[in-house]
Amino acid sequence: MIRRLVPLALLLVAGVAVASDGWLAQASQAVRTTNYQGVLVYLRDGSVDTLRIVHRYRDGEERERLVSLSGEPREVLRHESEVTSVLPERRVVMVAQHPREGLLSKFGRYADGGLSEHYAFRELGKARLADRLCRVVMLEPKDQYRYGYRLMIDKQTHLPLKLDLLGEEGVLEQLMFTQIEFPERIPDEALAPSFDTEGFRWVRHRPMEVQGGEAERDAWEVSDVPAGFELAEDGFRRVGNGVARQLLFTDGIATVSAFIARGEGRGFTGGTTMGAVNAYGRRDGEYQITVVGEVPEITVRYIAEHLQRRAGGVAKE
């Protein structure tokens, strides 16, 4: 559940990229450099998930701890780019390296602007949340390829406290703090796992070295993407017993992942929706192409249809 929450939660500072007001520009820094702890509630598809978060910034380093308060027990611990997930019922600990992004921070690198071509920014006034005075702001998409966002940002600390993800039919998903504190000091023990992991199976995910990887890259190209989206990452990941090429596209707020993998059988074709997440799949010869993201269906379909093999390109093992 925590893993599913992260993509939406990362959007809480989306507005910093398109505003000129100083208080809003500070939001991107607040999510990284502020000490805070509290309770988050995540609503989607009629279900409610609750998490406790502790975030500390000290001596230039970020540490964060997420604890699931509903559903399957689990914790996620982050120290800079290292992310450790503890699943006590499965007696498994997973360790992976991720970009320097926490639960709430993603858009600091986009604070130089550039999104106004695709989103309109509006300030909607003030409101209270978790006994804090907030400014309410709206990001409205200018086309059909992205969702809208409504944020409540704490007036004093500039930390985003609530996000509504908006589609044509209204609120698709919602994330908010129900409790929030800003302690001056957070001790190490508040960021330590609460489960004894002795005897657990440890799984460490390391960057993959794929033989023939460059040939796979050379064999495929993206002929077009929706306006505003750019290729941000291009690499490989293990999927089941095989390897898939993964391409990550972003417009500075929304992100879309495309996977290209060899596979027998019919595979996944057409579109499917789960809440705000849309996926679209198609076959190209022996390859399965799957595109997924928290964007409208037209966006994932557009990208999937414009992933193609180069003329004369041959992907090798």
Rank of each mutant, 00 (worst) to 15 (best):
R78F: 09
P73E: 07
G275Y: 06
E184D: 14
E169V: 13
A244H: 01
P141V: 07
G213T: 06
L191F: 15
V67Q: 14
G167W: 09
I303R: 00
F195L: 08
W202R: 15
V54P: 00
V291S: 01
G267S: 06
G271M: 11
I303Y: 00
L8A: 05
V54G: 01
K155M: 12
L10Q: 13
K106A: 12
L161F: 02
R283V: 02
M274D: 15
T255N: 12
T290R: 00
R283Q: 07
G60F: 05
L24A: 09
E233T: 11
R245P: 07
T269A: 14
F259W: 08
L43T: 08
R3K: 15
A30R: 01
R310C: 06
Y145E: 00
V18S: 09
V239F: 10
R100D: 15
N35C: 07
T34L: 14
Y280W: 12
Q246L: 08
P7S: 10
V13C: 15
L12S: 05
A9N: 12
R63A: 15
P160N: 01
H158S: 10
S194P: 10
V76C: 11
D143C: 03
R201D: 13
V225L: 01
L10V: 08
R135K: 10
R262D: 02
A9P: 03
R309A: 09
R32A: 11
S194Y: 05
G235V: 07
L129M: 05
D154W: 00
E117V: 10
V54W: 00
Q308V: 04
E294W: 06
I303V: 08
A219C: 08
V39C: 04
K142I: 09
A215K: 12
Q211A: 13
V83H: 01
L77S: 05
E173G: 10
V18Q: 04
L191K: 04
Q288D: 13
A19M: 12
E216F: 03
E82W: 14
M94R: 12
D59V: 08
P160C: 11
V67H: 10
E181T: 05
Q144V: 14
Y149H: 11
H79R: 15
A311R: 14
L175N: 01
G213K: 05
V41E: 09
R266D: 10
G170R: 06
R65F: 05
H158V: 02
A232F: 11
D45K: 08
D188T: 08
L163D: 06
S28M: 03
E221W: 03
G293S: 04
W220K: 00
G271A: 15
L51A: 12
P187N: 13
Y149G: 04
E89I: 09
P73V: 04
H79M: 13
V277P: 04
G170I: 03
L69N: 09
G270V: 07
R109K: 14
D49W: 01
K106W: 14
R90W: 13
H79Q: 12
F121T: 07
S68E: 09
P160A: 02
L161M: 14
L5Y: 07
P160I: 00
